[in-house]
Structure formats: C-alpha cells, structure tokens
Amino acid sequence: MVDHTADANSVPVGESRRGFLAILAMAGGAVGAATILWPVIDALNPDAGSEAAARPVVTVSDIPENTARQVMWGGLPILIRRLTDKQLADNETVSMDDLPDPASLESRVAPANRHFVVVVGLNTATPCALEGNTPSEPRGDFDGWLCACDGSQYDPLGRARRGPSRRNLPIPRFTFINEAQIQLG
C-alpha cells in the first residue's frame, strides 16, 4: 500500500500531486489562451503599408543644391529643398519689416540641418502647386517658388515675399532621423 504522507506535518502526497497537476494544467491553459489571443492583439497593430504611408522616410542626401524634391504625404505635395550657402547668408539678413508674415531663418530650418527647407508646396493664397523646384523653372524675383496662377512669390525658405499671398508656406512635422534621411509625420 502506498504511504500517502511523508510525515505527520507535511502535505499528503496525493494532494500535493493533485495540486501540481492543477498548476500544470492552468499554466498550460494560460499559455494556450495567450497563444490564441496574441494574434488578435497583434492584428490591431497598423499594417505595414499604412505605417509607411503615414510616416514616410525620405532620403535627402542626394538632392542637389538649389533644388527641391517633391513627395506626396497625406495628399499634400511636400517640397524638400537643399539651400546653397549663399542663399542661407542672403536670407539670414532679410529685414522682418519687409515680410508679410515675418519669420526668421531659425524658425524655417532645423538648427542642426540648416541646408534643408521642408514646406507644403501649395500657394497659401490660391491653393495651387508652385513652380521653382529646379533652377530651370521660373522662381520669381527671390529665387524661391512662384505661383503661375496668381503671381505669389516665395523665397527659398518658403516665406511669402510678393503677390497676393500673405502667409508663409506651412512647415509639416518632420524629423531628421540621420544626416541623410528625414521622416515626415
């Protein structure tokens, strides 16, 4: 006959074994339930395509000087322009009194990457696309962007300078994730 007690003070062996089996079963059940439910939780994560579209990464290192690259983001044309040293120096000294919507150089570029301007490429007076992304396109008197529809002119920092437009080009939310790439959104 099996002795079900080790000694007078200990838990009977049968109950101990039963308790162990109950814990084992519950642990197995918990692992099984977690395995089944984890995909449900994982499925609520955004899909890769939406995530990439919502926060696209743009390589800017290959943009030539004095040229802008256009990317579409959230249905808006985003212009990323690499400034020349001369443009930086010229626009740093512009008097705020001459600007319809005063904004300093520091407020228009990222401090650590002053050579890049990122703006929404829609005229703020009449919302149409701007010209001037490449030096061969008409850029107006300020070597920036020009709206061929209403004649609004912007400087290379995207500030309104002449024409019916009274507001600067908006700056979208973006982050330099390294020297060569920015992430929008």
Binding site: P39, V40, D42, A43, D47, A48
Partner: peptide
C-alpha cells in the same frame, strides 16, 4: 497586409 490578418 495586416499583422496576423490571415489568422484573424
């Protein structure tokens, strides 16, 4: 496209 979408 959705993570674990085919499992759902």
């Amino acid at each position: 496209e959705v993570p674990a979408g085919w499992i759902m």
